[in-house]
Design a protein around this nucleic acid. Structure first.
Lengths: 203, 203, 203, 203
DNA sequence: TATGAATGAGCCTTCATTCAT
DNA sequence: CATGAATGAAGGCTCATTCAT
């Protein structure tokens, strides 16, 4: 059966009610991350993931209905990591500080596991997976913070989207180049974002 | 020595000397573009490309020594289209006008075949293909124009790289979202790039 | 390291730990023998072998990393059969009896599955497989026995090599012609080997 | 059309009546020899032969109805070379001298183009080609000479066959090992053949 | 007749997925 | 529930052969 059924589930097959299951699921997802990082797309296959996770391929399919579900779970995990860090920005009083925190989060996120981040960016845009993942959540959070910083901006959602795109572009490129100087990257990123706002702020 | 070198060739197998051949090669590359656009990575296989091109699989392999070579050819074709447009900027007297022309070229490029552009950006960064494509040429051209515009900038290559990354990020995102308003995108992109320069210009 | 080493493995992919697996492996090797015998080189392909073995092509590749590994396994099986029989010669006290036993073993070996033996002799000399198989083991065993029989011979390794070559030549030819009279062949082979020794013995 | 028709012709498509054609045919056969020697079986394909011969693949098929026909032609050429050399033995008065000449011819033949000789030995025994080639001619000539040397031998054809097999076995092995000392090989070969005759001569 | 572009059957191999144990 | 042997669709690629020019 190679015809991908449109009703295919991307959610884990079972809500892992027991602690044991939860552990297994987590170990599989982490194994997926590791395989993707060390072997790239070419080597990202379910058998390799199961092997690395130390479970049987049968078990993997017990928890994930298919390869895509596993990919989605991995993307969700990474997105959540990012989202949780970004959410801290919401607790900051100063809007500018919040925006700066966001920038720092983006840089941190990317430079922690750059290869993984890049690969997931790619997977994320696969038509079959589109929308299934919580990318928009990130943009929404981003937008919330941004809009607090630029209350007088016309079209704040557009601006938020652009800032997000700029961030992603610069940060991906930095990962690609193998940059490791976080502070330098952060400084340039701030220049880009605040620069954008200063020019586009009052259309 | 019959051992096939592991360093696969990415160059077309034969220079299509006859008009007939040239047509065939072009039709295969265009078919590759179409398949990639309509089927995505999953459906991008040599048999599908040959079928879409209306040639046999054997013919495809007569002109391209492998799947990667075909991908590289496609990337080169798209890159060339972009490069040729960008090169016009070099003929402009005003540095600012040149930079603005560049921005327009990037926008035009991306919005013509957005899906294709995004997919190729991805393929381009595949480890196996790295360096084989003319990506650096683009960045080099970009850098040339940028450096004329910002003679007093410290680290002009870094700035050029950042501008390139910003452009790519915004323009990819726009394509992803399905934006069609070229002028609006161009305006925002200018805001981002000139904004970046105004903030990062005098470190 | 995802780059697959060009030095393909010739060893079975997994040691068949379970009885079920062992059977499968054996049936695949036997199927390979049969296909080679009945279809010759032309028809010796992995799909045919899998079909004849009554397993899926996937199973074949679960146990053998490639076609060559399967060939090597077959050669090893046949070589082992021969080797084990020849090894009996080492237990004989009389050097002459040992040599005669060897001759008998060679004749037996060849006439049991003549076509297979000939085909494997050929495959064995394929550049890619050279050294991977236990051919030298056979010659070494042969040499051991021979040297016990001809202690005063100058260049005993050369003599052993020649005797091996004579044996192989005569026995292959007999198989090719479809001879079935083992005793007659054995008599002539003895004439050849002892004749060689009587003439070349005291250079 | 992959089904090999049993009526397939192995003879050149046209009797090359013109000198030009004869040259072309010869150059193709020589190219076949060279490809087989330098690339082995793996690289022995019609396109490679045509390329090496400096003719188009179409021309090759003009002169040979298929790949097998080309192989047969090559085997015939090599066989003829051998046969012509061996035939000189018939002119010698002494039977022993004739036999010795034969031995020398075999050694020369093998050591001139050892790889080619081995490869052709293999091709020769392919079921599809069996009988099409003139191997038996060689054995017949061999038998004629041998029988002159051993008039009192019982079963002279058997003896001739054995001598042929011994010769082929030793000479192939020598080629395989890369031996270059013709005289040494010849001496050992004589020991083998005359040794065989001395032992098997008077059953 | 020569050419070489084109053809496509068929081979090797991978990997997502299933299911008997 | 876990296991991992088994499955087979599908994809990359080669090469003998044909045929329009």
């Amino acid at each position: 059966m190679s015809e991908r059924s449109p009703q295919k589930q991307y959610r884990p097959r079972k809500a892992p009610s027991q602690a044991r299951s939860e552990e297994t699921v987590a170990s599989i997802v982490e194994a997926a991350a590791q395989v993707l990082e060390s072997e790239g797309f070419e080597g990202f296959n379910t058998n390799a993931v199961a092997r690395r996770a130390g479970v049987s391929i049968g078990s993997l399919y017990q928890y994930f209905p298919g390869k895509d579900a596993l990919t989605v779970a991995l993307i969700r995990r990474e997105t959540k990591r990012f989202h949780d860090d970004m959410a801290v920005a919401l607790t900051l009083r100063s809007a500018k500080a919040a925006l700066e925190y966001l920038i720092g989060a983006a840089v941190r996120q990317q430079l922690q596991r750059p290869v993984l981040a890049k690969l997931l960016d790619m997977e994320e845009s696969r038509p079959g997976l589109a929308g299934e993942v919580g990318k928009l959540d990130l943009e929404a959070l981003f937008a919330t913070v941004v809009q607090r910083a630029i209350p007088k901006h016309t079209r704040p959602e557009v601006a938020a989207g652009d800032l997000f795109a700029i961030t992603r572009g610069m940060v991906d490129a930095a990962g690609q180049r193998g940059e490791t100087d976080l502070e330098d990257l952060e400084r340039r990123l701030k220049a880009a974002l605040f620069g954008y706002l200063s020019k586009a702020g009052a259309d």
